[in-house]
Amino acid sequence: MSDRVPVLKIGDILLVSIQVDLEDQMVLDLQDDLSQKIVATSARGVVIDISALEIVDSFVGRMLATTAAISRVLGAETVVVGMRPAVAMTLVELGLSLGGVRTALNLELGLGYLRRAQASSPENR
């Protein structure tokens, strides 16, 4: 029995703030919840905040890339925000570059990026 990571809705953006170190089951649950919620709320963007994470292993690293790919398929863009320097260095050493995942320094910049991206997308013109 493990906890679930909450997925919060702000307008048409979903916010996932990861506060505790992730176990593998939680990661899988999160992927499940998130894709359900994107469909249910027809969200246009997803922000995953990992500023509280001190350790990101290759499994979680891959999960971030997979989640980004899943949301893109469902029509929402993902921004990973608040990665710590130590985490970035670890991921580089592990050979993961999170290619294809948008990143931002903090939540504010991430939200700003998503809003701009939506505003400039052809559907909203």
Partner: peptide, 12 residues
């Protein structure tokens, strides 16, 4: 390259 990739992952 490593340095650049790490900075990118942080969003810069």
């Amino acid at each position: 390259l490593k340095t650049v990739v790490a900075a990118r992952m942080m969003g810069a």
